[in-house]
Nucleic acid binder design. Sequence first.
DNA 1: CTCTGGCTATAACGGCCGTCATAGTCTACC
DNA 2: GGTAGACTATGACGGCCGTTATAGCCAGAG
Lengths: 194, 194
Amino acid sequence: MAERRTPSRERIVAGAADMISRRGLSATSIREMAKHARAPLGSTYHYFPEGKQQLATEAVRYTGEWVARSLRKELESGPVEGLRAFLALWRGIVVDSDFRAGCPVLAVAIEEPPADETPPAVAAAAEVFAQWEALLAASLRDHGTEAEQAARLATLVVAAVEGTVAMCRAKRSAQPLDDTAEQLQALVAGAIKR
Amino acid sequence: MAERRTPSRERIVAGAADMISRRGLSATSIREMAKHARAPLGSTYHYFPEGKQQLATEAVRYTGEWVARSLRKELESGPVEGLRAFLALWRGIVVDSDFRAGCPVLAVAIEEPPADETPPAVAAAAEVFAQWEALLAASLRDHGTEAEQAARLATLVVAAVEGTVAMCRAKRSAQPLDDTAEQLQALVAGAIKR
DNA sequence: CTCTGGCTATAACGGCCGTCATAGTCTACC
DNA sequence: GGTAGACTATGACGGCCGTTATAGCCAGAG
């Protein structure tokens, strides 16, 4: 055990993901993340000895896995349904937060590497994007789309949704998301019918 | 006059846009912006009395107008050429900076409003997005695309490019941009032929 | 030459930052 | 019951933040 009795660590990660999705990584302090999770500051350095970078990395992976779970489930009904769920998920986040929250993965991806190396959190963001694309692409292939075209379309879908979510926040409107949703759904529907 | 002899102000704005496109707004300090433009800190508050928000707002508008100028010029040769230039512009920024720079407008759009009001810089980001969309949509309409479809496609293009630029930074690869470029060009080409 | 006003130089203000250290508490097992 | 180890409490460290204030420079208008 020593597992079942520690939701505190997960609360910190989930809270960090939420705060990063709203304010970005560098504008979110460890003190605020701890307070938001009702955990003492010392605990964050107990659970995440490598500090902010580690916490950010885990927050990115946490979000990645959470979205991937929903995606995997809905893709069982086909690419169109999977895409619809993907769009609905992000629409919910943006609208329910009154256009204050977005995607923490994008927020971390937009972070200049301090030196010449890619920090782990940014690398995790790249992996999460790739994971979402892979899920979508596999489902497209399973429904008759040629492999390379499936990969390209999956990239377009993920990138377009990420960009549209950011755009919705700036405009304080869900209209862009609804507009791109329609077109992406048409694209996906067209790609599997052949 | 009192205009011709002051490139200092513009240097600050342009430098701020560059730094914001790399590090994001909250991670870029006014001191660093001043130093980057080789201007004294006091000058920033002389030129921008409302502080960081004003400087960010002007940096967003500056980038918006710079991109719009390129877009307007290339759209004279039609939507496909305009899109190609738009894509090439962002590809150059991402690749030339070794995947360290992106779009400052997106970086500002991803910023939680502190209170219940939208800060001016975020509002400016929304206007810049709308401006780019309007230019693209107008060109599409001029080439036979139905009005509402033109607007929707323009939104998709801008959002997809913004999202893809961010994705390229995370992955440290221009591949996503090349992949989405191909598909967006096909979409635009298809929309004007009818 | 004087004077005005745009620009600069310098320093200070309170405040929050990431990180670390140290001493405590409390629980779970031997 | 004792003891180890997971967690917490507290406070400190140097450093950078946005912003403001004040005094000084120095070109150009009168």
